[in-house]
């Protein structure tokens, strides 16, 4: 048993060591409580639905969401809009389809099986419309940033006047959480920007939190299943480990050597 402690010590050491080595930039992000953190974490449905609203009304004019489909909005463990609501959302977008019998592309209302409509035709068009900067696709954005949700949440609230001595070019803004502090996205959120249907007060902080929650879900749509399954798997493994441990003791008791 002593050796097992040593093994686990070794594992923990490697883990800590790895986390340290990855934390290259040390910025203090703004703190908030995330309902999906921890082994039993779940998404806050209402926050996801509000977050979708913020994405739809604010972010989606520049940022694509290309790996998400409208059907995902109904999916368990997500915002869980009703099927009728999601159909209405899908139908509010025009989707390019075709070619039809005449060989022409045509527009039709979106269906559940369609992917989220992109704000720009392609990356070049997106750059051209945004002063050369490509607004990154948002589907897995949370996983693509070292700071994860805390980083996104902070960035949305991190706009400040540049400190003395920092000059900014046209179309460049100062954000204290951005890598290098210079960002080409202007401050998007202001109090009361959207009107939440559930009556929640749309403060900047609230919107930042809601949309970040939504982005966490788009990046990890199976997070709730993963947490649930993980708990079962680990409990199961512990039970089996205990059983095997006693079986091992029984078997080794036939000879005089300890295990």
């Amino acid at each position: 048993m002593k050796n097992l402690f040593r093994i686990s010590f070794f594992v923990i050491f490697i883990l800590i060591f790895n986390i340290n080595s990855n934390a290259a930039d040390k910025v203090e992000y703004l703190k908030t409580e995330w309902s999906f953190k921890g082994p039993f974490g779940k998404f806050d449905r209402a926050a996801l639905q509000r977050g979708y609203q913020v994405y739809n009304e604010v972010c989606s004019s520049c940022h694509s969401m290309k790996y998400l489909s409208y059907r995902n909005l109904v999916q368990r463990g997500g915002p869980e809009f009703s099927e009728a609501q999601a159909k209405a959302i899908a139908a509010s977008f025009e989707v390019k389809d075709g070619p039809n019998a005449d060989g022409e592309m045509f527009m039709r209302p979106g269906r559940l099986s369609d992917k989220f409509v992109m704000p720009y035709e392609n990356e070049k068009a997106a750059q051209a419309a945004n002063g050369g900067a490509y607004p990154p696709d948002m589907t897995v954005l949370v996983k693509a940033r070292g700071g994860g949700v805390d980083y996104i949440y902070s960035l949305l609230q991190g706009y400040e006047d540049p400190p003395a001595g920092v000059t900014l070019d046209d179309g460049v803004y100062y954000n204290k959480f951005m890598y290098g502090n210079k960002i080409k996205m202007s401050n998007q959120l202001s109090d009361g920007l959207v009107e939440y249907s559930d009556g929640t007060d749309a403060t900047v902080e609230q919107m930042a939190k809601d949309v970040t929650t939504f982005l966490m879900w788009t990046a990890e749509p199976h997070l709730e299943t993963r947490h649930r399954m993980g708990f079962k798997a680990i409990v199961y493994l512990i039970i089996l480990t205990v059983l095997v441990y006693f079986s091992m003791k029984k078997i080794w008791s036939r000879i005089e050597t300890k295990v």
């Binding site: 199961y236 039970i239 089996l240 059983l243 095997v244 006693f246 079986s247 029984k250």
Partner: peptide, 19 residues
Amino acid sequence: RRDFLFTATYAVGAVGVGA
């Protein structure tokens, strides 16, 4: 008792393999 222990271990193990 030994037999019961082994049977239980096998049974629980088999459930895991299935899962």
